[in-house]
Computed example of a mutant assay.
Amino acid sequence: MRKFRGKMGLGILLACTVALGGCGQSAQTGTEGTEQTQTVELYPTKQIEYVVPYSAGGGVDLVARAAADYLSKEWGQPIVVVNKAGGGGTVGAEYALKQARPDGYTVLATNNSNTSMLAGGMTNPEIKIEDNTFVAKLGEGTLAFVVKGDAPWKDFREFSEWVQQNPEQLTWTSVGPAGFSAFGVAEWLKAIGVDMQKTRMIVTKGASDSLPKVAGGHAVLAVHTVGEAHAMAASGKVRIIAVSGTARSEFLPDVPTAQEQGVDGLTVKWWTGISVPNGTPESIRAQWEAAVKKMVNDSAFQQKLREIQVEPVFAGSEDFTNEINKETEYYTKLATERGFRK
Rank of each mutant, 00 (worst) to 15 (best):
G6M: 04
M8C: 11
A291V: 05
V223E: 10
K98F: 09
R157Q: 15
K3G: 12
A64D: 04
N297M: 11
I48E: 00
S244R: 06
G21R: 06
G206N: 07
V226T: 08
A100K: 03
Q309I: 10
Q259A: 15
I202K: 01
R200C: 02
N297L: 08
F251M: 04
K342W: 00
A109F: 03
R341S: 09
Q287I: 01
Q303P: 05
G11L: 11
S26L: 03
S208K: 07
P167S: 09
G262C: 02
G58V: 08
G339M: 08
A234D: 08
F159N: 07
V80A: 07
F183S: 05
A15G: 13
I127R: 01
G121S: 00
E323Y: 01
K98S: 12
F159H: 06
Q36D: 07
Q197Y: 10
P281K: 02
Q38F: 03
G262R: 01
A182N: 10
G24M: 06
A258H: 03
V276K: 04
E289L: 14
E329I: 15
G11P: 05
G104L: 05
A186Y: 06
Y70M: 04
K7T: 13
I274F: 13
V263L: 03
E329D: 14
S317L: 12
G179W: 11
V18Y: 02
R341T: 08
A151P: 02
T332I: 00
D209Y: 07
A335C: 04
L71C: 11
S317R: 10
Q47N: 08
S275L: 00
M196R: 07
Q77M: 06
V60D: 14
N132D: 13
I324F: 01
A182K: 10
K326E: 13
G104V: 02
L170N: 13
Q28H: 12
Q165W: 00
E307H: 09
D264K: 15
S210P: 02
E126L: 01
G176L: 02
V175A: 07
V60H: 15
V135M: 11
E323A: 10
T142A: 01
I202M: 04
A229I: 04
T328E: 10
S244P: 08
G339H: 03
V163R: 00
P281H: 04
Q169P: 11
R5Y: 15
L10H: 14
E168V: 15
E327T: 09
S113G: 12
A219C: 10
D298Y: 03
F145M: 15
K98Q: 07
P78D: 09
E282R: 09
R285I: 13
K333H: 07
L221M: 05
A335P: 01
F183A: 07
I241A: 09
L62G: 14
E318P: 11
E337H: 05
G176Q: 05
A15C: 12
V268D: 10
I129R: 03
V146F: 14
V146S: 15
P253Q: 13
